[in-house]
Each structure stands twice: as C-alpha cells, then as structure tokens.
Design a protein around this nucleic acid. Structure first.
Lengths: 215, 215
DNA sequence: TAGATTGTTAATCGATTAACAATC
DNA sequence: TAGATTGTTAATCGATTAACAATC
C-alpha cells in the first residue's frame, strides 16, 4: 500500500491534512470532495488528489472522500498509533514547555525520560516525570531503548550528544538546538526546528511588505 | 539593491546562511568560497551563488566572499537591526518559554508586552515583563503600536484574536496556535510554527526508515 | 441514466544544478 | 600572468497544476 519513496514535500503536508480532517470529523462532516477540502486548506484539488494517491486510492468517484476513513488512513500512514518512546535532553525553559505543552501520545510518541546535566534541575518534576541526571543516560537507554531524542540543549553540546545517542540506538531527533543536525548519520531521521530562523524570516517578510506599500 | 520578488525558498535559507556565517566569523575565518560554504552547509555551491545574487553581487571573482561583509549584508537583507515591537498573547507554558528562551533583539524584535486572559497569570513576571490582562490589549496597541504578535493561544481563540489584532495595526504573526493562520489578510505576514506537524513528520520518517531496513 | 468526482496522465511552472565566460 | 572563483545563462530536475477518461 505504501508506495516507494514519497517526496518530503508531500510528507510535510500529511499532518496538515490530518489536522483539517480531524476538524471536519469533529464538526460531524461525513464526506468531502478534494475541491471542498482544497478551498478550506488553500491549495489545489489536484494537489490533494495527487498527494493522497501516493499512498492509495482512498476516494470514490462521484462521491469524494469519507472523512472518518481518510482521517484514519492518514493516521495509519503517519504511524501515529505507535507510541514510540521519546526522551528529552535539556530541561531548560524550552524543554520543560515542550513536555508540558505537547500532546505526545496523539503524535505517535510517549515521553519516558527527561535528562539534564545541571544538578539544580535534577529531581525537578516536569509533568509526571522527574528530571534525571544526564550521567544516567546510557543506562537508561540500555534498559528502555528510546526511539527518539528531543534536543533542547545548547548548540555546543548538540553534535557530540547526538553522536552518543546514535550509539545508544536513537532512531530520530527532534532538534531544537541551534546546531544543524543534518545528514550526519544514515538511517536516523532528523527534524530540525529552528525557531530563530522562523522569526528572522518573519522579520524579512514584514520588511518586504512595508517596502511594497511605500511604492 | 533588493531585487523584486525573491522566492520564499530562498528567503527561508537566508537565516541559515546567517547562522553559518556567524559561526565562521566567530571562528575568525576571513574569507570563504561558495564551494567551501556549500560543503559545510550540505548544499551546492551553485545554489549559494544563485541565492546571494538575488540580492546583489557580494563576492569577488577568484577570491570568494568576505565573511564579515557577507554576514552583515545578510543581516541587513533580513532587517535584523530594526528592533520592531512584538507582543505575546498567551502566557502558558509555551508562551513563557518563548519569552525566556528566544533572543528577540538579535532577530529584529523587542518584546514589549505579554497578555493573557487568565486572571491567575495576570501580574506574573516573565523575564523583565509582567503579564497584562488581555482586556487592556487595545489600549496598549493604540499607545505602543506593536508590529508583531506572537500567538501562543488556543486554536479556538486564534482566528478572532488575529482579526482583532489586524484592526489594531499588527503587521505580522508568529503563530504557534494549532489554527492555520494563512492568507486571510493581505499585507500581513504570517509564520505558522506547527510543532505538532513537525513531530508527526518525524514519526512518519522513522517508520519509513524502519520499513526500509526490513527489506 | 446523468452528474459528480476521482485517479492518473500530460503540460506547466519553478527551483536546482551545471556550465562557462568574465574577472579579480 | 595563471589560477581561482564569481555572476549569470542555459539545462535539468522535480513539484504543481490542468485535463480528462474511468467510474461510482
């Protein structure tokens, strides 16, 4: 059913489809056509049909798509039902907020450990977990085999920490550090979230808009 | 010097160039060729030269680029020296972490106000600012004319809040809410940061890697 | 059946890469 | 000058859009 290699552009749209379908489902909508969905989402009907057909024919001619079925198909494609184990490294402001703010279980993960090397943070309760000393990281990984590490650590620590974690069997990184954790390892997935880059981009675009107005 | 409309793909790479150049600058590197930079960043030399030439000819044949000059040019292009006024809406875990974690001033902004409608949060000090009641938002905007609003509010509130803020003169949104704040307004820039989508994408990609290994 | 809408192929558009003459 | 490397044009690649036959 899952066809070969789907482009990253398509993959990045899947969670968005998922969100919109969830809303439709909550609103009690039973069926939707690619045309109606495209209007809601601000893209073309063609693109929606192309995207979905990377994974299978989920629609029905003359009818459209069943909202519930499509929602569940996309959940399955994304693998959100898996509850892989995740650990957080770095229990600073951002790290703690991510723990408290994110709904991991609906995104395919379960947070099983929080680590920090700062003795002042060790023992602190964040949500239902207490911060552990990073010294115990290796033992923890041997025992629990986490799949994913969330990096909320300083830039300087990111590269070496990631290397160590790969040796401990980590399969994916959700990287909030300012270090570009890319391509370095094979068979390991990386999502870099550069909040600073996003803010800089916003700055640029506001400047552009202002320039455009002055003309 | 700034040429017409630069594609969003190019714009999104600018902050990354900026980061790498800052590192080079800190390391004391004086000059760099597009070839060397491309190797460091994991892209092609062609792309770097194309990207930079959207804004001007910053290099010199036979020499390459002067790191300090290029760094400053990109700062200028992004407009990071402007210190536009930003306000935060929603002082929950994520909002507070963003205040404490982000270096606004090096990204072209200055945080001038924090608002929340929860009376329990009003008065709370977050960094150097105290959380204000959302009821005072309009007055505040009239007086201070903030340019940007950071939205860390629930999905349900996002749409209407954004509409109100546009009326108060907001020019850009840094949107962390689960609502897709797009295209609704003309002349307003929006950066949607969907952390949940990023996590879902990571989930998908780990599953893909695992499948690939089993073959 | 007639109307609607998909799945899919073909056409277009844009972004990336390659090539090379210009030039420091 | 000879070597290096840019700026820029042309070629390629991939992603998006359009079109339409298949079919519910």
């Amino acid at each position: 059913m899952a066809k070969g290699n789907v482009s990253l552009s398509v993959v990045r749209r899947l969670p968005r489809y998922h969100r919109f379908l969830k809303d439709l489902l909550n609103a009690g909508t039973v069926r939707i056509s690619s045309g109606d969905l495209s209007a809601k989402m601000g893209l073309t009907a063609s693109q929606i049909r192309q995207d979905l057909n990377c994974f299978g024919g989920f629609g029905q001619q003359g009818y459209g798509y069943n909202v519930k079925d499509l929602y569940e198909e996309i959940s399955k494609i994304l693998g959100l039902g898996k509850h892989r184990k995740a650990i957080l490294l770095g229990a600073g402001n951002l790290g703690r907020a991510i723990v408290l703010h994110m709904d991991f279980s609906s995104r395919g993960f379960e947070l099983v450990g929080i680590f920090d090397s700062n003795p002042e943070l060790v023992g602190l309760k964040v949500g239902s977990l207490a911060v552990q000393d990073s010294a115990g990281l290796e033992d923890f990984c041997r025992q629990h085999h986490p799949d994913v590490a969330i990096l909320c650590i300083p830039k300087e620590a990111a590269k070496s920490t990631a290397a160590v974690l790969v040796r401990y069997g980590i399969r994916g990184f959700w990287n909030f550090s300012h270090y570009d954790l890319a391509l370095d390892y094979d068979g390991v997935a990386v999502e870099n979230v550069h909040l600073g880059d996003s803010l800089s981009t916003l700055c640029f675009r506001i400047n552009e808009l202002e320039k455009a107005e002055k003309e």
